[in-house]
Design a binder for these strands. Structure first.
Lengths: 339, 339
DNA sequence: GTGAAAGCGCTAACAC
DNA sequence: GTGTTAGCGCTTTCAC
């Protein structure tokens, strides 16, 4: 492996000049730049990452803590990771992968200076990692908004707005009895912020519009979706518009409705919230509000970079929901209107 | 941040002694070890990763190149990555994430000494990355087996054996007309090794047993699965056992069969090959041969570690397929037996 | 069983 | 516009 000294010698300059050519931190005459760049190419020179990190106190790596546990939608995680990696590369950074169950991962990576910044996914209301994150030298960005986000930077889809948008869409189509089939009971109990905020948005908007609303938790599985749909129809037989915020349960919900002879959207309108592919890949695609995983990942990285660039303000950034129409929402049938 | 000198001073020893306490590369008296470990704890000392990499020529990082492109099953990728990260941590290594479309990623990471070894997923028969991999100082391990694997280490599920096992299972249940609904035409054309090997196993075993076999490619989507099933029933109306090696098409295939009034397993047996959850999460779970993503990831890391430990032999490691019975394979109905 | 000292390859003052 | 030099924090001979 060629070193910076090899390059310097080949180009007839000093090592620091090579370094400055590379970093652009001081003006270089065209001739010198030319010769240095040529030598770099000829020798196939690449700066040693460790040496660079040692001398500059920058690793050009950002760490990403990803949940590999079950129940978390993998499609959306991949989207998110893809977005984060792409954005990191644009800023000349690489991504180090940490898993949620590697509890000391953040600490290790931060205090050994392996990473310049840290992104933590799937943050819960009372996340136990927050105190540690606040003590770090490196900036961190959370995906999800905890109860106390003071001093921390967060990004997420605006789930409250998504809940509102979903109900508004149904209400404007004429529905008077709507429902939310949401996250699992366990998730609500752990106060998973996205589940709670979504529910709040749905309930607020329903109240605002004087629309009846039923909320049913659902296990993240086909069977869970079936059970939730059955429970919902028992609780409110007149329900005509259903918001499903649970990718894994979605096929079950749809199947259970079909089983009851309820056609979408003639008899019941269905609107999905979650990973794009979940709503799209069903035998009947559904109108949906997609969680923009790729964008969230990108924004998280941009926020880390802003901090590294001297930006000092921490804050929460909520991304506006957008609805993709796939014709699964329509005016309610008479049955419901009469209800 | 405390440095090794701070620890040395606090413990009343030299820096090299601290280093040796940490690495265990030379005997340390109990008393000294005690004091050093105490100081390390008191100061919350963590070696600086860059300094360590510079001095030792080891980064304790392994790079993982992951395909984020569409069509590749995300569930299995996550499994794989999870297995790799877990195994890497057991060997005191971290994982750096590279994406497939970052074409210069391997080169960058290798020649800047960011990683000690490299794992490349989703390798194709004539993979363009192979020449580069062969020139690297760092060992690399491929997931998938290219046409020419000389000088390289590979791991994968033994898809040929999986194809055989699938056909054997159907044949032993009494089926005389079987089929493979496989990867997309594009994948066969790019000679994606897993698709080709699977098909070979299916065909060999069918020939061996004198069983008729029809192979139908399928696009990786619900619609693709429907189309493939329809095409299959046209090509061989007597088919009674179907192997589906395409997670995304699986729901479509199942739906198309149901649409035709064909019950599983009474009228037609279905056996899935692929991600565990794809076969498991259907409304009717299917007997399947699961791709053991977690194990493959783990083995890939072990192979890298073996190379780093001085192991010099490159080679291919194929993991034996295992069948999980979910009662979707049964004896053929008379219709088929009579055919 | 322990210490001193020479790097590892780079960056960033400080000089001119 | 360029060179000189002093580290960055660690590992690992070599020496005792």
């Amino acid at each position: 492996m060629a070193t910076i000294d090899d390059v310097a010698r080949a180009a007839g300059v000093s090592a620091s000049t090579v370094s400055y050519v590379l970093s652009g931190k001081r003006p270089i005459s065209p001739g010198t730049r030319e010769r240095v760049e040529r030598s770099i190419r000829d020798l196939g020179y690449r700066p040693h990452a460790g040496a660079r990190a040692l001398a500059s106190a920058r690793s050009n790596v950002i760490a990403l803590m990803v949940p590999f546990r079950a129940g978390v939608n993998v499609g959306i995680i991949m989207q998110f990771v893809g977005g984060a990696v792409a954005a990191a590369r644009q800023h000349d950074h690489d991504v180090l992968l940490l898993t949620q169950d590697d509890t000391s991962g953040v600490d290790r990576v931060a205090s050994s200076s392996m990473a310049d910044g840290i992104i933590v996914m799937d943050v819960e209301a009372q996340d136990t990692r927050l105190p540690l994150l606040r003590t770090l030298r490196q900036p961190s960005v959370l995906i999800g908004v905890p109860d106390d986000s003071s001093g921390l930077s967060c990004v997420d889809l605006d789930f409250t707005a998504a809940g509102r948008l979903a109900v508004r869409t149904l209400a404007e189509a004429g529905h008077r009895h709507v429902a939310l089939i949401g996250a699992s009971r366990a998730r609500y109990e752990r106060r998973a912020n996205y589940a709670v905020r979504m529910r709040a948005g749905v309930q607020d908007e329903a109240e605002l519009r004087g629309v009846g609303v039923t909320v049913v938790p659902s296990e993240p599985s086909f069977a869970g979706g079936v059970a939730a749909a059955v429970e919902l129809l028992a609780l409110d037989p007149d329900v005509s518009g259903v918001v499903v915020h649970n990718e894994s349960a979605l096929p079950g919900v749809v199947a259970a409705l079909a089983e009851r002879g309820l056609r979408v959207p003639q008899d019941v309108s269905v609107l999905a919230v979650g990973a794009a592919d979940a709503a799209e890949s069903l035998s009947q695609p559904l109108t949906s509000i997609d969680v923009p995983g790729h964008d969230i990942g990108r924004v998280a990285v941009e926020m880390v970079m802003a901090h590294l660039g001297g930006e000092t303000l921490a804050g929460t950034r909520l991304i506006s929901p957008r609805l993709t129409d796939r014709a699964s929402v329509a005016a309610p049938a008479r049955r419901a209107l009469a209800g």
